[in-house]
Design a protein around this nucleic acid. Structure first.
Lengths: 189, 189, 189, 189
DNA sequence: CATGAATGAGGTTTCATTCAT
DNA sequence: TATGAATGAAACCTCATTCAT
């Protein structure tokens, strides 16, 4: 009941930020959503920016760790690649607000992203560069990265907009397969 | 001389919106960039939102028309597809602020997008659905759409960040080819 | 153990008030300095103002009583005068925070000073007026008062800033002698 | 009528700051006194602190220049000394709010004083150190400085409180003479 | 057309004080 | 006695918009 408020603030802030944008969400919005007064927020956070950063740090790390775990477990490059795609989408589907928020943050605060360690994007980059170095991936790694990250974001977006239909597990599998085939099996240079 | 100021306002607003965000850019910022005072802006526009909408309308239509033209000219589906991809990237490279702005607007004002006709995305959607209906494209159109739109945005982003290197014409060609092969030639279901 | 906390609060409040100012010091600042929470302060004091007043009352009285004692003991006007000067500076050097605080309070709350009895300044005034009435002091008492009080404050200030150097006992003696000679021996009208 | 508002803000801010203190005066207080809204203040000043600094700079410089002028004109050390004392008090009597404000600022923001050039106190210090070096002043310069600055402040204070009576010109002359005799003619070491 | 001062609503933040535990 | 979360008023500041000139 004590530490709860802090979490509630983070929860509602995440929801509102991902819905309306960061600047578009006011401290009052958050306070109202939590059911406290504006002043109370400042017992738990020093500033609005602290909430903004803490949310990025929290979910960035979460996703980062999931991917790290998957990378370690998988035996083959194929398994690694597909599992990473699935992990991304799994996170996105389970925590859509968080995923949307991470994208917004990357878009609007790209300069500040550098201050954080544990950027999931970097793990993906490493994987793709590694695959290319080993000759598994013929496509230029920069392009492959663009295809993968772009597709991930859009698949999530279109799924949440209802453009892409079907069970989430199906969507995850299909996306992983599609990207693998596109980039690896259709060997392109 | 009269119309010039109005255009300058749009120009600077676009630059600032795409750099810092819409809410993050103030009327004063725009006025200063143009070299006039805040009040003067209201001689040309009724409100900040009018600038926001007009910019979206303007560049959305521009891109829409370029794509329309290309679609009409092209003889084959392959030519259509590749030319559309190239047209998108051409627009993005020539008017990076506008392209970034269209993306921001889509992200933050998705509800309002519906008020506008001439959404380039819809032309792309139509093309892909058409290709699928004709059997040219085996990949499910929703996924193909996700791959194409996502990749386009990322290729532009990574090019402007310096992650993707090389001449712009090369990048455009390569992206078009890559997407065509991935989605069409690697026949997938 | 009970009274100890109360005293600690007064102690830390005095230090902070004299360092940063009254309005500039928050209840939270004081609580943190003492090592308790904000709420706990209100177990010991009804309000911030009560702390402010009690501190003034406490140190004002202390200095008042020291001076009173000295005045009673001394046999001659010269001894009285010099001892009073020394007592003022002795208090200032031993309790610099308190002395600074008394000055701040006089400056910012001059209206409220009247509510208190035991204002050290009044004893000094009485002494000087008395000396003048007896013909010991030729200088007009109002001016003498200005010279004495002003000099005392500045000697303390310059000593704590390092502008005036030397042992404190020396500074006290020298100031007493200097003021006595200036105002009394150099008979002026 | 245009530039007037800016000056009015400075004027009222000075009055309120010197009456109630800096932290104790709100932007709203100033706005109300001027007869405008709070927001309007920010068209003329970037922040409350800017007003605070500008006021210090303005009156500090004014007094500084008056003293500089007097120092240049005067032929003898005696004339210099007395004229400087008179100039200080003249400023204090003509602009009591400004004089009180300079004192408050020195007291509460001593660290920030170093950022400014043209501190009147420094001219006084120079004069006294010079007089001592030449043997005109036998009293140690640090003590002399304490007596002079302390007395000046108190004479002003007691005059404005009604403790010191008489015409202002009389008070100025008397203070100058009293300080000269005390520190110089009563040769002390 | 343009200026730039002003408004007024609303944003972020601070802080003395209260209160359930 | 003490905690620490919460309140609520008020502080500083921002900014889209209006308006007299």
């Amino acid at each position: 009941m004590v530490a709860r408020t802090r979490d509630l603030i983070l929860e509602e802030a995440l929801r509102l930020f991902s819905e309306k944008g960061i600047k578009e969400t006011t401290i009052r919005d958050i306070a109202r959503a939590v059911g406290i007064t504006e002043g109370a927020i400042y017992r738990h956070f020093e500033s609005k920016d602290q909430i903004v950063y803490e949310l990025f740090e929290k979910y960035s790390s979460q996703l980062y760790e999931s991917i790290e775990k998957v990378l370690k477990k998988a035996r083959t490059r194929e398994e690694q690649f597909k599992k990473v795609v699935i992990t991304f989408l799994d996170f996105a589907f389970k925590k859509p607000d968080a995923f949307r928020y991470l994208n917004i943050f990357h878009y609007l605060r790209s300069r500040e992203v550098k201050k954080f360690k544990h950027i999931p994007f970097l793990l993906l980059k490493e994987l793709i560069v590694g695959m290319h170095a080993e000759g598994v991936l013929k496509t230029e790694p920069e392009y492959a990265l663009a295809v993968v990250t772009g597709t991930l974001e859009r698949v999530f977006l279109y799924k949440s907009m209802g453009i892409i239909k079907g069970r989430k597990s199906k969507v995850k599998e299909r996306t992983a397969q599609l990207l693998w085939r596109s980039l690896v099996e259709c060997s392109q240079s």
